[in-house]
Amino acid sequence: MTLRVLLNFPKKGWAVVKLLAVFLKELFLSGITVALQIIRPRLNVRPGIFALETGLKSDWEVTLLACLICLTPGTLTLDVSRDGRILYIHAMNIEDVELLSAQIKGSFEKAIMEVTR
């Protein structure tokens, strides 16, 4: 048991580093994107709230995902359903819901799962 944890440690550590790198990258991208959106003279955003069904199970994972979503360009978690399966997300530009949720599922959920499983 202990041996397995020890053997597993380098992989987990690498996954944590990768998750942190994703966090930092998203923060920079989102800050710059939102700033560009603000200084544009004509405000052409189409905001809205959409529901995202997540495949993550535990509270810890969902919390991490919600925090991460708050840092992506133009999205903000507003509410989580009672059972923690559906996140309600306010997005600045909502023209392509499918693309947005595919992006979130593809990059974030995968990075989180690598850490926790």
């Binding site: 939102v34 603000i38 905001p47 840092l71």
Partner: peptide, 23 residues
Amino acid sequence: FGLVRLPDVYLRSHAATKSATLG
């Protein structure tokens, strides 16, 4: 500036949480 300019709470919250934090 976004806090002053944007039209509703949610959009303002975007500006405050992202740009200001990065700054």
